[in-house]
Nucleic acid binder design. Structure first.
Lengths: 323, 323
DNA sequence: CGGGCTTACGAATATCGTAACGATA
DNA sequence: TATCGTTACGATATTCGTAAGCCCG
């Protein structure tokens, strides 16, 4: 069993069982991969992929388990390289983060600015996507850290750390009737067409929950995955925007934000990484820049605890910032 | 980075940094290992081993971390092979257990008998040793399961499952004054020279605790790592034996066992394995044979929980057998 | 000077790419 | 018939063993 072979079978799965694509992705020849896969299968004495004649059709049950373990193994191999780099080039490396548009656009810039100044030789890659995509990117090892607001993914080997709480504001044009309202109510919101986040994004369930509790069926006329699009359509007069308060900036002087924090449950932004990944020194710093209470000792304590319930307790007496 | 290279560096550490021994252990040539180690070090750009001229002197800090990860990686590789064997030869394989003499001698035989009948093609290897050796054997991957009575090893990637409780008896020859005592007291024990387990074995701390609590300094004249040796010296008249009650069998008709369960804290026997190991089907069965409440679903639930505190809770309402 | 690591070198083996083939949809 | 995996084969690398060299205690 060679690591290459494991890399091949994992990448074949990543490429939806297309060996030719896999060869391209790995910059090697397609027959080479076929052969190595066969050799591995011979060594293990079973088929990892089910073939239909000469086409790969699916993964066998045994193959699924093997690939899952192979993934973990390859992460360990990456960790070894990271450890080596940590010693040979302490402040050189890559930091890959998956997050939602809102985080990338409104929360990360100041952190990134500080980080880049401190670590000019660490190249930063921000992957944007839906919570599902973020989760996949993290689990497949495409990224090192995930910053999300969605529900915790239980039973995964993830360490999840609480960063801060945030809530929503209603966004309207300055001439909108709601613009002068002092105490926004859920009923008032229910009277207007709404523009908000697409389902599955940044705490939409908290929004649903509040309307349901009030017995109101909200008239959602448009959804988008990011606040900029929401603002654009609010400007077009399509409806009242409901979005993360932090997405309303001083540049939006034509729009009025009416705090709606009392109407909806707060969402929590978390930073997550796989239990098995080796964190570079600069990654600890990035985490602390993002959330000052997540100091390196705290993060390491959480790593040792492993269990997310225990981690939750660890931060019970930390007062999270509200944004 | 090749798996072979990782195997080499891990084995060099296992062999106390002696490369020649490592070569023998791995059935290969010594220069081959030296070369591969150098190649790995070149690739990683750092030294894993510190050399004094041409002798390997110690492990570098980076090397320590790398070797720790390499160990985990190799366990994953073994897991892949196990998965394959599980599918191709379900009832064939190896089961390696590390345990103390008392377990091996008095508790395992019936389990092994049943297991061997059920799985004639699984070869069983029982490693005996001190709790420390058992722990090491488990962590280094020498064995699959550990059966111990010692304190839980926290912060290790171990799953620990409670098996049963046991306590001690005082063992004397039939003509000994204590032989006719109905209610044994700690003070009575304190009047005689004692023969018991060596420190670090099978719950010696519970024994110390009871004597300390009673303000008695026990006169321990002889200690041994196993009950058979203790019995032998009791027969020689060296003193009163204190050992696991289950170690007194019908063959010991010349010795009288006086239950001392009310004098000492019960010890708990646990079965442990590394979180990262893949358990073969027959391993689940072995565990259940050993402790009927540890059914496969229960063990799998514990594996998912990972956290030993959570696991403890899982078994809170299970009434453990007392042996 | 002997145990123990490294270097040198050659044989066996493995890997990988190109080209040709075959099968499926 | 086009797409995609397998087979064949040769060039190149890698691995591993033997033999010789070298250094430290």
């Amino acid at each position: 069993m060679k690591m290459q072979q494991l890399r091949y079978i994992v990448e074949i799965v990543n490429q939806n069982l297309n060996v030719t694509e896999t060869a391209n992705a790995l910059y090697t020849s397609q027959p080479g991969i076929s052969k190595q896969v066969r050799l591995l299968e011979d060594e293990l004495g079973l088929e990892i992929f089910e073939r239909n004649g000469k086409h790969i059709k699916s993964i066998t049950p045994a193959g699924k388990k093997i690939i899952a373990i192979a993934r973990e193994l390859l992460v360990k191999a990456e960790s070894i390289k990271s450890v080596a780099n940590e010693y040979t080039r302490p402040d050189h490396g890559v930091l890959r983060i998956a997050t939602t548009n809102t985080q990338a656009r409104y929360m990360l810039p100041s952190v990134v600015e500080r980080f880049s100044k401190q670590y000019p030789d660490v190249s930063l890659h921000i992957h944007q996507g839906s919570p599902t995509q973020i989760h996949d990117a993290l689990m497949s090892g495409e990224v090192d850290l995930a910053i999300t607001t969605e529900a915790p993914y239980l039973f995964d080997d993830l360490i999840q750390l609480p960063c801060y709480l945030w809530n929503r504001s209603a966004i309207v044009k300055a001439d909108h009737p709601l613009a002068k309202v002092k105490n926004l109510t859920i009923e008032a919101l229910g009277q207007y067409p709404l523009v908000t986040y697409t389902f599955g994004f940044t705490g939409v369930s908290d929004l649903d929950y509040a309307f349901n509790a009030a017995g109101i069926l909200p008239n959602i006329v448009f959804t988008a995955t990011d606040a900029d699009v929401i603002k654009t359509y609010v400007r077009l007069g399509l409806g009242v925007g409901i979005m993360a308060s932090m997405a309303h900036t001083e540049l939006d002087h034509d729009l009025v934000a009416i705090d709606a924090g009392h109407l909806f449950r707060s969402s929590m932004t978390q930073i997550a990484f796989k239990q098995s990944t080796f964190l570079r020194n600069y990654m600890y710093d990035f985490i602390e820049y993002f959330s000052p209470h997540l100091t390196r000792p705290m993060v390491e304590k959480a790593e040792r605890l492993r269990d997310n319930n225990a981690i939750k307790k660890l931060f019970d007496n930390v007062k999270l910032e509200v944004k």
